[in-house]
């Protein structure tokens, strides 16, 4: 009886497996990335990076690898972490745009849309939230807690603006914040606005 049940279960499994393959293939037929390397979305990529990498291992900073190394690493992680193709392209875009002080000509279009008349809140949500978290407490170990009264926000504005503009590595953190949070198109006005938003939202 037990063998018969096992046999039925295994047959069912095989049929369901075949069904899953067909479903997945048809679901994705129109979204196959025929172009390469197809640009992803910087903001979505920063979210993928912050939400997925730390699930298994310590976060690796964008500056640890070159652009081409990030491509292979991201595709390796697509397999390991079960990322979709779009998530893979997004995270590659984020990492490649964040690993240099100056932005390569070919990648400016990826981040340009972030700086068009955005408010401090919008800048935070598109550029800062991946690492600093929606609640300002840090999305993963090593990022400062903005809600800590004796923490990062106890520093004067000119110091914090300098940190945001030129990049900064918090004490104890193995990874540095890239200049302008990895978005080189942020203007001085954007940076002032985002700092004002951070103080207003998380400061005590």
């Amino acid at each position: 009886m037990k063998n018969r049940v096992n046999k039925i279960c295994r047959q069912a499994l095989r049929f369901s497996s075949a069904g899953l393959v067909l479903l997945a293939s048809s679901y994705s037929a129109s979204s196959f990335a025929a172009d390469y390397p197809e640009a992803g979305n910087f903001s979505d990529g920063s979210k993928v990076w912050a939400e997925n990498c730390g699930r298994c291992h310590n976060i690796r900073g964008p500056k640890e690898l070159r652009d081409d190394q990030w491509i292979s690493t991201a595709y390796h992680m697509r397999i390991r972490a079960g990322l979709t193709g779009q998530e893979t392209r997004d995270v590659i875009t984020f990492l490649q745009a964040s690993n240099t002080k100056t932005v390569a000509a070919g990648s400016t279009h990826v981040v340009a849309k972030l700086s068009k008349g955005v408010t401090g809140r919008e800048t935070y949500e598109k550029t800062c939230i991946a690492c600093h978290g929606a609640e300002g407490k840090g999305a993963f170990p090593g990022t400062p807690d903005f809600t800590d009264s004796g923490g990062a926000l106890s520093k004067p504005d000119d110091v914090l603006i300098n940190h945001i503009t030129n990049g900064f590595q918090s004490p104890g953190s193995p990874m540095a914040m890239p200049p302008k949070g990895g978005n080189p198109n942020l203007t001085a006005k954007d940076i002032t606005a985002v700092l004002k938003h951070i103080r207003k939202t998380f400061g005590k």
Partner: peptide, 23 residues
């Protein structure tokens, strides 16, 4: 990488049963 949602992995692979051994 067959599509955005499917990859065919062929060869000797780390067992996908559970998390510790594969990741």
């Amino acid at each position: 990488f067959v599509s955005d949602y499917v990859a065919i992995i062929a060869g000797k692979f780390l067992s996908p049963v559970g998390q510790f051994r594969q990741n």
